[in-house]
Amino acid sequence: MPTLPAHPNCRCALSAYWKDEEKFASGALDGESRRGQEHARRFYNELRNSNRKDLIMKIFKSSKMSKTIVSSSLKHVLDSKYDLIYDGEIKHMNFVPDYDMAESAKRLRIGNPLKHDIITLKHEALEADLMDK
């Protein structure tokens, strides 16, 4: 669990949640499981190694957001390095792959985004703008 604030101008928050014991016991993928974290890591690498122009076009079409927002968001999440707190130390690094973010990117890429996927896209582009300054 990160120590907050985790990055410059951090407005992140921690909150309690209810873990579905049945889902957890079934081995289903989620952000808490080792399988879910590995899935996110593999998917981030897949996105990093994909044709970025094609990826931007797919997300642009499915999200109806500008190519600038899509490009900025992807660069921020996948490529940019920041001074982040990791394992109690400040390290210059990429964001750690996140299961929910990976699933959001997957829906955006295949053209089936949910409302919160669009909000996440906007959030990441704005966060990139703030953190890159």
Rank of each mutant, 00 (worst) to 15 (best):
Asn94His: 12
Thr3Gly: 06
Pro2Lys: 13
Leu121Lys: 00
Ser71Trp: 00
Asn49Asp: 09
Asp83Asn: 14
Thr68Arg: 06
Leu47Trp: 02
Lys23Cys: 00
Glu127His: 11
Ser63Ala: 13
His123Gly: 02
Ile118Thr: 07
Asp129Phe: 05
Gly36Thr: 13
Arg109Pro: 00
Ser33Phe: 06
Trp18Leu: 14
Pro8Arg: 12
Leu126Gly: 06
Glu32Arg: 10
Arg11Glu: 14
Ile110Cys: 03
Phe60Tyr: 13
Asp83Tyr: 11
Asp30Cys: 14
Trp18Met: 12
Leu121Tyr: 00
Ala28Cys: 01
Met65Gln: 11
Ala25Cys: 09
Arg52Val: 06
Ala125Tyr: 01
Cys10Met: 14
Glu32Gln: 09
Ile85Arg: 14
Pro97Cys: 11
Pro97Asp: 08
Leu121Glu: 00
Glu22Trp: 07
Lys67Trp: 01
Ser15Pro: 02
Lys19Asp: 13
Val70Glu: 00
Asn49Glu: 11
Ala105Trp: 15
Phe43Glu: 02
Lys81Asp: 01
Lys91Val: 14
Arg41Ala: 14
Asn51Ile: 05
Met1Lys: 08
Ala16Gln: 11
Leu29Tyr: 04
Tyr44Arg: 05
Leu4Asp: 08
Asp100Tyr: 09
Pro5Trp: 06
Tyr86Arg: 15
Gly36Pro: 09
Cys12Lys: 10
Leu78Met: 10
Ala6Leu: 12
Lys23Tyr: 03
